[in-house]
Design a protein around this nucleic acid. Structure first.
Length: 491
RNA sequence: CGGGGUGUAGCGCAGUCCGGUUAGCGCACUCGCUUUGGGAGCGAGGGGUCGUAGGUUCGAAUCCUACCACCCCGACCA
């Protein structure tokens, strides 16, 4: 990763922003804190969407769409929920403009104030549970398993491309169930879907866990998450799945008739992942040359760069390039022959490395003569000369290997940067100097968590679900603990 | 909302302290020739209300006043 990152933490964000912009993923929009996602970046997001959507459908979910605007009164129905989101809501107060008196431009027409202000959704629980009230009457209407792909707005004070923008794209699932057990199962099922997606598609290893009270979603009973480690040693929450209990059912009066004829409150879940995953992808895999996109997400999996000295060679080589392109396309590989004569080969090499294209083929006069191509892989940087014979199969298996290798590299990094720690003094020193995940015992209190946060800036990322049980003593207070939790500095 | 900083060509910057030729440099852009196996070289060219509004002065990017915008650090957060 970039020199600025390993040496000085404060250099990191600039490096990250530069990479996002130079690699043609996104740029800042004229509206503060918002971003323009460019076609190359959006294609990656679309592929994420498609993969995830298939996984949701496979577990019985369907898509729907709810309004962007939420009446202010809805938001205040669940006390914790409004408390959590009130500080970052964009509010629509008027519905009309008029020409200004001085003839310069337009002003808000004060006569056109809305009777009830509208909140631009920071998340859709309230508007969705308001609809569920009408949709759910009987146990026969349950479970209700709905997802929506949408944009939401949270008026963050500080923003960063993909990681924290004022407007972001995401999916949010909202389900309703007749029993607590079923709702908890749904919460964990989705957590598994997220972990599977992160590891097998994004090639980012994650730890599934439970959030502590202070990090819990506003309005949830339990918040589960997947946590990833970035190359600068900071943690990134990559997805959350919430068990809502009966909180929203209570707030919106959503009840159902059981088989026995009783009226009961329904149980809920909600869960989401966002364009933040793009940030995770960039930071988990990128290096000094630019992005490294896992083959399953790469908009271009193979790029072919012709090298030539004159018109005649250009024609011949492009013909060979096209033949290879056709062969790869038949196997479903996304391949691009860059036959532009307006850019030079060295320029193209750098450009596609910056964009993270997994495999590059270069064909020049020498190769043509020997029936070879130069094959370079982005993840390791290795280059080799291979025969054209059997190239397609070779590339197919190389793409699979690359996908695995990127994951393994990230996993190795995480393992090397995860340590058990028992002394709070050691912890303070190491958190300051090293970064990474720290597995430590904690007494389970919010006070201790708060103290550690204030003194070290590290927070409890999660209580790992699959963590081994181990009796121990809280590193701060010495009180008993039954399991280690993950501490880290986080984005 | 607190602390710091910056506004000069599409992007990145120098010039401002100490006012004085036609406001300059790198990248990008246009044209020409040579190049093309790791971000080409040479030559020519185009592009500026110096954030905005006042003021001082023979003369303001530069000094004074007010305003505006943006960025960074913190609090907040997927």
């Amino acid at each position: 990763m970039g020199k600025g990152i390993t040496s000085r933490e404060s250099d990191y964000p600039q490096w990250y922003n530069d990479l996002v912009i130079k690699a043609d993923l996104a740029e800042n929009s004229p509206v503060r804190g918002c971003m323009i996602i460019k076609p190359y970046g959006f294609t990656i997001w679309e592929k994420m969407q498609r993969e995830l959507d298939d996984m949701f459908k496979a577990t019985g979910h369907v898509n729907a769409y709810f309004p962007l605007f939420i009446p202010k009164s809805y938001l205040s129905k669940e006390a914790d929920h409004v408390e959590g989101f009130a500080k970052e809501c964009a509010v629509v107060t008027h519905y009309r403009l008029k020409n200004s008196e001085d003839g310069k431009g337009v002003v808000v027409d004060p006569e056109a104030a809305l009777e009830e202000e509208l909140i631009i959704r920071p998340t859709s629980e309230t508007v969705i549970w308001n609809a569920y009230k009408n949709w759910i009457q009987s146990y026969r209407d349950l479970p209700l398993l709905i997802n929506q792909w949408a944009n939401v707005v949270r008026w963050e004070m500080r923003t960063r491309l993909f990681l924290r923008t004022a407007e972001f794209l995401w999916q949010e699932g909202h389900t309703a169930h007749s029993t607590e057990k079923e709702a908890v199962e749904e919460t964990l099922r989705i957590l598994d879907v997220y972990a599977d997606f992160a590891e097998n598609v994004l090639a980012i290893p994650v730890i599934k866990g439970l959030k502590t009270e202070s990090e819990r979603f506003a309005g949830a009973v339990d918040t589960y998450c997947i946590e990833a480690l970035m190359q600068d040693g900071k943690a990134l929450q990559a997805g959350t799945s919430h068990f809502l209990g009966q909180n929203f059912a209570k707030a919106f009066d959503v009840t159902f008739a059981t088989k026995e004829g009783n009226q009961e409150l329904v149980w809920g879940t909600s869960w989401g992942v966002s364009t933040r995953l793009m940030g995770a992808l960039i930071m988990a895999h990128g290096d000094d040359q630019g992005l490294i996109i896992p083959p399953k997400l790469a908009p271009v999996q193979v790029v072919i760069v012709p090298i030539y000295k004159n018109e005649e060679q250009y024609g011949e080589i492009c013909e060979v390039g096209k033949r290879i392109q056709d062969g790869l396309r038949k196997r479903g590989i996304l391949v691009k022959l860059d036959d532009r004569d307006t850019e030079r080969p060295g320029w193209k090499f750098s450009e596609y490395e910056l964009k993270g294209v997994p495999v590059r083929l270069a064909i020049g006069p020498r190769d043509l003569e020997n029936e070879n191509v130069e094959l370079a892989r982005r993840d390791t940087g290795q280059k080799e000369i291979v025969p054209m014979e059997g190239l397609e199969g070779r590339i197919e298996s190389l793409l699979e290997e690359t996908q695995k290798n990127i994951f393994n590299k990230a996993l190795k990094f995480r393992e090397e940067n995860t340590q058990k720690i028992d002394s709070y003094d050691d912890f303070k020193k190491k958190v300051k100097n090293e970064g990474g995940f720290f597995l430590a015992h904690w007494d389970g209190t919010a006070e201790t968590e708060e103290k550690v946060k204030n003194e070290t800036k590290a927070t409890i990322r999660c209580i790992p679900i699959e963590g081994e049980k181990e009796e121990g003593k809280c590193m701060v207070t010495g009180k008993p603990s039954s399991q280690r939790v993950i501490f880290a500095k986080a984005y």
